[in-house]
Design a protein around this nucleic acid. Structure first.
Length: 161
DNA sequence: GCCAACGTTGGC
DNA sequence: GCCAACGTTGGC
């Protein structure tokens, strides 16, 4: 069992959308490294943190489970799509998406600020400078720690009275 | 909207 | 295969 962090802009697709849909195909990934994680390393049953990027605040917003193996991303064939790729054909797709299932929407987003100020998470990839990968592996230790933070009702990053 | 950091493209 | 130019990501 592996653990992941997957980014999405909530204005495009948020944890609430996933909650409503139940499950979805993780479409529109156009980065080879992220694609390779999906096609080579992800397995059904893996758990993934749903990360809101370009959000207020940005951070981890929920939990989902990989529930379907990688299939060709249909958006690469759609001429009108921003994600159309003229080099891809149905016989020779370039981009793939796995299927994810909603598990949980956290009561609050665990913000970047909170992640940054939590001891033990300094090696979390999403906190590293310039780390833009939209799909990132997460260690079990980090995953467990973030889930613990999510379970606490409120854990402001700095002392508040 | 700015811009740093990174990925991709394409000329050579 | 190098690398400059360009495009994208994503925090702020």
């Amino acid at each position: 069992m592996k653990y992941w962090l997957m980014k999405s802009e909530p204005s495009v697709y948020s944890i609430s959308d996933l909650k409503k849909d139940g499950q979805t195909y993780w479409e529109c990934v156009r980065n080879y490294q992220a694609r390779n994680f999906m096609t080579r390393d992800m397995q059904i049953g893996d758990l993934a943190l749903f990360y809101h990027s370009n959000a207020q605040p940005s951070g981890v917003a929920g939990l989902m489970k990989v529930c379907g193996a990688a299939v060709a991303d249909p958006t690469q064939f759609q001429k009108k799509s921003d994600y159309f790729d003229g080099k891809a054909t149905p016989d020779n797709p370039i981009w793939f998406c796995i299927q994810v299932q909603f598990l949980e929407a956290f009561e609050r987003t665990i913000s970047l600020d909170e992640l940054r100020t939590t001891p033990g998470l300094s090696e979390l990839l999403v906190l590293k400078k310039g780390q833009r990968l939209s799909i990132q592996p997460v260690t079990k230790t980090h995953f467990d720690q973030i889930m613990e933070m999510a379970a606490k009702k409120s854990q402001p990053p700095k002392g508040r009275t």
